[in-house]
Amino acid sequence: MSMKTEALQAAHGAEEQPLHHQFEELPQQNESYVVGMWVFLVTEIMFFGGMFLAYVLYRWRYSEAWFEAHTKLDIPLGTTNTVVLLTSSLTMALAVHFAQLRNKRLQLAMLGATIGLACVFLVIKAFEWSAKFQHGLVPGPNFTWEGLVPAPQAQLFYSLYFGMTGLHALHVIIGIVVIGVLALLTALDHPLVKNDFIPTELVGLYWHFVDIVGIFLFPLFYLIPK
């Protein structure tokens, strides 16, 4: 946290951050936004939580079928994607760091890198998904399952796989849009973000949450033990 204090002091030395009318002072405003973001992330955890509960139930109930079903997932691609996501978390953290130091150039570069890595993640995910489409592993009337375990149980695995990675991918897309808007506003010195590292920090919190979900999804779907 000392980095933040330094940054705040640096900020106070330079131009003042804008203060919105409902707040009395800057620390109150900044803390409000951060607390608000954390509460929002709690709702996100509960949102994914419902699906994780369904996952736990059916993995426990149909453990054999799920093991069989998971072997059709591409572990190298999944691993690559996890690494990509982790790296994007690093670049995002650096973007926040440079925002606090008011180094606009490096902040923008790091935001750009994060967007880039997020796009790489989506492209890899798209390859994975299209392979599943070709192999008829998409739940629904066209679901085909050749293995020994019953098709409905394998289909449930893929239902939750598509449901959860799909919801995660949706979060990644939203993240790309939000980071893009943030970068644009920063580049234009828009008053919403000028001299204010809090928006970057908030977006960073969101992005780390998206990463953490991704990190949970990888072992849960790709690395099911026999």
Binding site: P152, Q155, L160
Partner: peptide
């Protein structure tokens, strides 16, 4: 999409 999370016919 008939994903079958709640339908016993689909597991």
């Amino acid at each position: 999409f008939h994903i079958g999370v709640f339908s016993p016919e689909l597991g």
